[in-house]
Amino acid sequence: QIGDLVNIDLDLEIVQSLQHGHGGWTDGMFETLTTTGTVCGIDEDHDIVVQYPSGNRWTFNPAVL
């Protein structure tokens, strides 16, 4: 839910696979593998929007978090 702290604890290849159809994966997202983020929103597809200390916001398949 919004305000929750979240981490990704999966291998890169699994995360990339799960992201298909959920915003995809870009090289800029590598920070998300090692950094705790804060849930800042849930979109119309029930994907999770997470903000990181860098100021970046990324959209994830809920199965990734």
Score class of each variant (00 low, 15 high):
residue 2 I to E: 11
residue 2 I to W: 02
residue 2 I to N: 10
residue 2 I to S: 12
residue 2 I to T: 06
residue 3 G to T: 00
residue 3 G to C: 12
residue 3 G to F: 02
residue 4 D to T: 07
residue 4 D to H: 13
residue 4 D to R: 11
residue 5 L to M: 13
residue 5 L to D: 09
residue 5 L to V: 08
residue 6 V to S: 01
residue 7 N to L: 11
residue 7 N to F: 13
residue 7 N to V: 12
residue 8 I to D: 12
residue 8 I to S: 12
residue 9 D to C: 14
residue 9 D to E: 12
residue 9 D to Y: 07
residue 9 D to W: 05
residue 9 D to P: 07
residue 9 D to K: 09
residue 10 L to F: 08
residue 10 L to V: 06
residue 11 D to W: 01
residue 11 D to Q: 07
residue 11 D to R: 09
residue 11 D to S: 12
residue 11 D to V: 04
residue 12 L to C: 06
residue 12 L to D: 01
residue 12 L to M: 12
residue 12 L to E: 07
residue 13 E to S: 10
residue 13 E to N: 12
residue 14 I to A: 13
residue 14 I to H: 11
residue 14 I to W: 08
residue 14 I to D: 10
residue 14 I to M: 15
residue 15 V to K: 06
residue 15 V to E: 05
residue 15 V to R: 00
residue 16 Q to R: 13
residue 16 Q to V: 09
residue 17 S to M: 14
residue 17 S to D: 13
residue 17 S to Q: 14
residue 17 S to F: 11
residue 17 S to A: 11
residue 18 L to C: 08
residue 18 L to T: 02
residue 19 Q to G: 03
residue 20 H to F: 07
residue 20 H to M: 14
residue 20 H to S: 11
residue 21 G to S: 04
residue 21 G to K: 07
residue 21 G to W: 00
residue 22 H to N: 08
residue 22 H to W: 01
residue 22 H to T: 00
residue 23 G to C: 04
residue 23 G to K: 04
residue 25 W to F: 09
residue 25 W to E: 08
residue 25 W to I: 06
residue 25 W to R: 06
residue 25 W to A: 10
residue 26 T to H: 11
residue 26 T to F: 11
residue 26 T to N: 14
residue 26 T to W: 09
residue 27 D to V: 04
residue 27 D to R: 10
residue 27 D to K: 10
residue 27 D to G: 09
residue 27 D to Y: 05
residue 28 G to D: 14
residue 28 G to C: 13
residue 28 G to N: 13
residue 29 M to G: 03
residue 29 M to W: 00
residue 29 M to A: 03
residue 30 F to G: 12
residue 30 F to K: 14
residue 30 F to M: 12
residue 30 F to D: 13
residue 31 E to D: 11
residue 31 E to T: 06
residue 31 E to H: 09
residue 32 T to I: 07
residue 32 T to A: 15
residue 32 T to N: 01
residue 32 T to Q: 01
residue 32 T to L: 03
residue 32 T to R: 02
residue 33 L to S: 03
residue 33 L to P: 02
residue 33 L to E: 01
residue 33 L to R: 06
residue 34 T to A: 13
residue 34 T to R: 13
residue 35 T to W: 02
residue 35 T to L: 09
residue 35 T to M: 08
residue 35 T to C: 10
residue 36 T to M: 08
residue 36 T to H: 00
residue 36 T to N: 09
residue 37 G to S: 12
residue 37 G to N: 01
residue 38 T to N: 02
residue 38 T to A: 09
residue 38 T to L: 10
residue 39 V to C: 04
residue 39 V to M: 08
residue 39 V to L: 02
residue 40 C to K: 07
residue 40 C to Q: 10
residue 40 C to I: 13
residue 41 G to L: 06
residue 41 G to N: 04
residue 42 I to S: 06
residue 42 I to Y: 09
residue 42 I to M: 11
residue 42 I to D: 04
residue 43 D to R: 13
residue 43 D to S: 15
residue 43 D to I: 00
residue 43 D to W: 03
residue 43 D to M: 07
residue 43 D to A: 09
residue 44 E to L: 10
residue 44 E to P: 14
residue 44 E to G: 13
residue 44 E to V: 13
residue 45 D to M: 14
residue 45 D to A: 10
residue 45 D to I: 02
residue 45 D to S: 14
residue 45 D to Q: 13
residue 46 H to D: 15
residue 46 H to S: 12
residue 46 H to M: 15
residue 46 H to Y: 09
residue 46 H to R: 06
residue 46 H to L: 14
residue 47 D to N: 15
residue 47 D to G: 15
residue 48 I to G: 01
residue 48 I to K: 05
residue 48 I to V: 15
residue 48 I to E: 00
residue 48 I to R: 09
residue 48 I to L: 11
residue 49 V to M: 09
residue 49 V to G: 00
residue 49 V to K: 05
residue 49 V to Y: 04
residue 49 V to E: 09
residue 50 V to H: 13
residue 50 V to P: 00
residue 50 V to T: 15
residue 50 V to A: 03
residue 51 Q to I: 11
residue 51 Q to L: 11
residue 51 Q to M: 07
residue 52 Y to Q: 00
residue 53 P to N: 08
residue 53 P to V: 05
residue 53 P to L: 04
residue 54 S to D: 08
residue 54 S to E: 02
residue 54 S to Q: 03
residue 54 S to G: 05
residue 54 S to R: 02
residue 54 S to W: 01
residue 55 G to R: 05
residue 55 G to P: 03
residue 56 N to H: 10
residue 56 N to F: 03
residue 56 N to C: 03
residue 57 R to L: 11
residue 57 R to E: 09
residue 57 R to M: 10
residue 58 W to L: 01
residue 58 W to Q: 05
residue 59 T to L: 04
residue 59 T to V: 13
residue 59 T to R: 10
residue 60 F to N: 13
residue 60 F to W: 05
residue 60 F to Q: 02
residue 61 N to K: 02
residue 61 N to R: 08
residue 62 P to E: 08
residue 62 P to T: 02
residue 64 V to P: 00
residue 64 V to A: 11
residue 64 V to Q: 07
residue 65 L to I: 08
residue 65 L to E: 05
residue 65 L to M: 08
residue 65 L to T: 05
